[in-house]
């Protein structure tokens, strides 16, 4: 059973439907107690860091998520959920959850032909092995839509990269948490494969 955190940040249903497609039951909740006790958690999100953080703090979901992380609950972050797990975001200069060291920064593009948001399908290259990213082959593409990206302080926390006017971090993690800037729920069969792996993941880095 997967628990999807609903914190008023975008279309949660598409994540739930993608879980259903791979045969995994998922519930959507905004109740901190449910999150703290969850078996495994998806932390999705589309939108702006300041309003998302304000909502998490107001509801106590921030503390519940931190507690689950410390307890070793497998957690999958998606998009905004891959940004606000860092210590801070340039978006509104907001202090964030700090589950992973580093900050979220805005694309600074020199090439005028490149556009922001970075929107569409792009290649993801795995930089160090991870049980959830095992199936990804060179040339595999995933769906992105974002103007900011996560920048972990330590390279050891980077698991995959993509490129838009230079390399940027496409997946990051720490222990039982892996988060991706792209949308596995909108990335066709290859994205569904990640959700399928997550449904079986015990949170350990070797498997």
């Amino acid at each position: 059973m997967i628990t999807i955190i609903d914190y008023n940040a975008g279309n949660i249903k598409s994540v739930q439907r993608a879980c259903a497609e791979v045969g995994v039951q998922a519930i959507v909740t905004s109740d901190p107690a449910t999150v703290a006790q969850a078996e495994r958690i998806i932390f999705p999100g589309v939108g702006a860091a300041p309003s998302a953080m304000a909502y998490l703090e107001k509801t106590g979901l921030d503390a519940a998520l931190k507690k689950a992380f410390k307890a070793g609950t497998p957690i999958l972050g998606i998009c905004l959920g891959a940004q606000i797990i860092l210590e801070s975001s340039e978006e509104g200069n907001r202090k964030c959850l700090g589950l992973v060291a580093g900050k979220t920064v805005r694309f600074r593009l020199k090439d005028k032909l490149l556009k922001i948001p970075h929107m569409g399908w792009n290649e993801v290259t795995v930089t160090q092995p991870h049980p959830l990213l095992d199936g990804i082959q060179p040339g595999d593409e995933f769906y992105f839509v974002h103007s900011y990206y996560p920048q972990p302080a330590d390279d050891k926390d980077v698991y995959a990269i993509s490129g838009h006017g230079g390399d940027f971090c496409a997946a990051l993690g720490s222990d039982n948490l892996l988060a991706m800037q792209f949308h596995p729920e909108k990335s066709g069969r290859l994205g569904l494969q990640i959700l399928e792996r997550f449904a079986r993941w015990d949170g350990a880095l070797t498997g």
Partner: peptide, 8 residues
């Protein structure tokens, strides 16, 4: 559609 299609 959203139950059957997993792309944007």
């Amino acid at each position: 559609v959203a139950r059957q299609i997993f792309i944007p």
